[in-house]
Design a binder for these strands. Structure first.
Length: 278
DNA sequence: CACGGATCCTGATGGC
DNA sequence: TGCCATCAGGATCCGT
């Protein structure tokens, strides 16, 4: 589910409401992708100071340490006060809920049917766990460090196809399958084009398309394909305006050619054979 | 090191 | 209705 726009929309939906909250309880359910890396009791009494994002990771800054949350493929967060009528559920996790943080300002819950997500505690940013997970990530697409010239150099060095290249997290972070397809459409680039075969002008168009598509998707509240919602239950709307993603067999919205789908690295790549050139 | 494929897990969907 | 195969927003690990 969640690519950068969905994670950012989630972050914005909790950041202002959870800041300053004191942790009163921690519930752990089924095993997620990685262990919590501390005893749940260790979190009690600490306060959430801020919520940041790095790539598709959410980082809850605590007064001591940081709680890293990844939504994997099917994860979503909710943050709400427990309705008084449901006080008896305070110490329970619902179906497919694997983590809950009870705080003075509400309860943060992670629901993740496929359990590809994770919640990991680290004492500091220097912690080995953080360095392992975040250490080799590429630049933030919406930040100042997403430099065009560095992007061009990195592309010129890679012989991989551009579509899996965008998904790798090395050239840039946060671009998943939906937005990789949409970005390549906007840039007019066929998904099988080798990174190193792009000329500098097409690289620049790609660089601009990454920013434009992700920013637009955040504005639209992300994409809700099945069940994504922000932490207040609001669905996204970007899926209504995708140009190629999940549109195989349908007419291109620009030229009316039939949208194609191929498999690259076990993932579907959707593209318009007329608008997107090798 | 760089790349492609298999892999973790559950649920939805479509064919028979 | 049931059963089976296939596919789904991610990222790591392993073999070449």
């Amino acid at each position: 589910m969640p690519e950068l726009p969905e994670v950012e929309v989630t972050r914005r939906s909790i950041a202002g409401r959870i800041a300053g909250a004191q942790i009163h309880g921690v519930l752990l359910g089924g095993v997620l992708r990685w262990p919590l890396n501390c005893a749940p009791e260790d979190l009690l009494g600490h306060r959430v100071q801020a919520v940041r994002r790095r790539g598709k990771y959410l980082l809850l800054d605590l007064d001591v340490g940081v709680l890293l949350i990844h939504l994997g493929m099917s994860g979503r967060l909710s943050f709400a006060h427990q309705p008084s009528s449901e006080l008896d559920k305070l110490d329970k996790l619902g179906k497919h809920e694997h983590f809950a943080l009870q705080t003075s300002l509400g309860t943060l819950r992670l629901k993740d049917p496929r359990r590809f997500g994770a919640v990991v505690y680290a004492q500091s940013e220097q912690d080995a766990v953080i360095r392992k997970l975040l250490g080799r990530l590429g630049p933030e697409p919406l930040g100042a460090d997403f430099d065009l010239q560095a992007f061009q150099v990195a592309l010129a060095r890679s012989k991989a196809a551009i579509k899996p290249g965008l998904l790798s997290g090395k050239l840039v972070v946060g671009v998943g399958n939906i937005y990789a397809c949409e970005v390549l459409f906007q840039a007019g680039i066929h998904p099988e084009t080798r990174c190193c075969d792009l000329d500098h002008l097409r690289m620049e168009r790609l660089h601009q398309a990454i920013r434009a598509v992700l920013e637009r998707a955040i504005q639209r509240g992300g994409s809700t394909l099945r069940d994504f919602s922000d932490a207040q239950g609001q669905a996204g709307h970007f899926q209504l305006e995708t140009m190629v993603y999940a549109r195989a067999g349908q007419p291109c919205r620009v030229c009316a050619s039939t949208v194609c789908v191929i498999r690259q690295g076990q993932r579907s790549s959707f593209f318009c054979p007329a608008c997107q050139k090798p």
